[in-house]
């Protein structure tokens, strides 16, 4: 029972953050939402007894991929009006 509750809670976080990634206007906010989605996925992996993929999820995705995406977001800032840029 408690596992189902935990699953529902973190599934809600995962889906909510995933919606945030695709619906938000600013790529930097989308990157933060992506971090939330990837972290909650690591919790799902632990609940599935996959501790090593969970650790790799944190190290490779949050520590590597997300930092690279943050680099790209910050290196590609434009000074155009917001409405034109974030489409």
């Amino acid at each position: 029972m408690i596992e189902t509750i935990a699953f529902a809670l973190f599934a809600a976080i995962t889906v909510g953050c995933a919606f945030g990634v695709v619906l938000v206007e600013d790529p930097w906010h989308a990157a933060l939402f992506l971090g939330g989605a990837l972290s909650s996925l690591a919790v799902h992996y632990v609940m599935l007894q996959a501790t090593f993929p969970a650790a790799m999820q944190v190290l490779v995705y949050i520590g590597g991929v997300l930092v690279l995406i943050t680099f790209a977001v910050m290196l590609t800032r434009t000074d155009k009006p917001r409405a034109e840029v974030y489409s």
């Binding site: 995933a18 990634v21 790529p27 989308a30 990157a31 989605a37 995705y61 995406i69 790209a72 840029v85």
Partner: peptide, 12 residues
């Protein structure tokens, strides 16, 4: 249409 969002969607 932003390439950064493409990258993040593929990650999802």
């Amino acid at each position: 249409e932003n390439a950064l969002f493409f990258l993040m969607s593929v990650e999802l």
